[in-house]
């Protein structure tokens, strides 16, 4: 028990992030409620955009239903797509109108769950909408926070905790992607192979991927021809990805980091012709105006929160006598 308390104290010193302190103020809670509301409004819009059973017709021979849609084994791909997309449309609009109700949020989750199942049943798993799936699952556990004007501290704490978990799971995905690259780099370094920290890593990824998908991209040629230009960008991408979960506990960096990740997705699209814009949209929702970011955060605190660079610069940023020193 004593060890757990010691660990908790140590973690609190590194991550001075307290849901309780945010819940005690009114603004973070109100902001989080608004963001959740627009999350469900946007899903209703997205349901209208994805309705297009015809686009699946050419993939009939690659249709292999995943476990969650066993009934699709007896139907054609087009029929399955129409049923699932219609269900997604209905569930999304139920969510848009009744997001305050937990049953409606469960419906929305089921709609996205089946839509992702459909996408994953054609050729290979499609991960673009997975983060929306995770967030819609976690939001099921929001407390009833819309009836009436006054809400107890407990309700505000639970609401912000669930919202924070949605932010954390989204950033966890990026940290796992970064961890995978670092793990692969260590393996390849000791195997004597070209690894992720080598200058030509990005150029090789681009050339190999575009060849495999038989495609071109706007900036792919440039980075294959100018290997050294891509090197710092690729290292920056690994840094952005790996430390993402850390940023969940550093609200001063929420919007900047989200911008960095969106910039990364844009770069991936321009070089490798891979779209991950659904995830970029989720980053905008959850982080561009994070309920946990204080508006009077100083630039010193923001820079000081940066992984590695912030740790190195803290001594300079927060010299004794500096009015922005922190304990």
């Amino acid at each position: 028990m004593k060890q757990i308390t010691t660990i908790k104290k140590y973690l609190s010193s590194i991550f001075p992030f307290s849901i309780e302190s945010f819940a005690a103020r009114g603004k973070p809670f109100t902001k989080a409620k608004t963001i959740v509301q627009f999350f469900y409004y946007f899903l209703a819009f997205q349901a209208l955009v994805v309705i297009n059973g015809g686009k699946f017709l050419s993939q009939e021979e690659n249709f292999s239903p995943v476990w969650s849609i066993p009934w699709a084994n007896h139907l054609s791909l087009a029929t399955t797509a129409n049923i699932i997309q219609f269900f997604f449309l209905i569930s999304a609009f139920i969510g848009a109108f009744f997001f305050q109700n937990r049953i409606a949020r469960i419906f929305v989750f089921l709609g996205i769950f089946q839509l992702n199942a459909l996408l994953s049943s054609v050729l290979r798993a499609d991960h673009h909408w997975y983060p929306w799936l995770y967030v819609s699952f976690l939001l099921i556990f929001l407390p009833d926070a819309w009836a009436g004007k006054a809400h107890s501290l407990q309700v505000r704490k639970k609401f912000l905790l669930v919202f924070f978990s949605a932010q954390a799971v989204t950033l966890f995905i990026y940290s796992m992607a970064g961890l995978g690259k670092i793990q692969g780099a260590i393996y390849q370094y000791f195997a004597g192979q070209t690894h992720a920290f080598a200058p030509e890593a990005l150029a090789l990824h681009i050339a190999y991927w575009l060849r495999n998908i038989d495609s071109t991209s706007l900036l792919g040629s440039f980075f294959v021809e100018h290997v050294i230009v891509g090197w710092p960008l690729f290292l920056g991408m690994i840094y952005l990805q790996f430390f993402s979960l850390w940023i969940a506990f550093k609200p001063s960096l929420h919007n900047i980091w989200a911008f960095g990740l969106i910039f990364m997705h844009t770069g991936i699209y321009l070089t490798m012709d891979m779209l991950f814009f659904p995830t970029a949209l989720l980053l905008i929702f959850l982080f561009f105006d994070s309920p946990f970011k204080k508006h009077d955060t100083s630039w010193r605190e923001t820079v000081g929160d940066l992984p590695i660079f912030g740790w190195m610069l803290r001594r300079i940023l927060f010299r004794p006598g500096n009015s922005h020193s922190i304990s």
Binding site: F113, G180, T194, H195, A196, L204
Partner: peptide, 20 residues
């Protein structure tokens, strides 16, 4: 064999640099 089972995924993507 696919390296994943819906909806679980490790998110270990592009972990190895292709050989030259």
């Amino acid at each position: 064999s696919e390296g994943e089972a819906y909806p679980f995924f490790s998110w270990f993507v592009f972990t190895r640099v292709p050989p030259q």
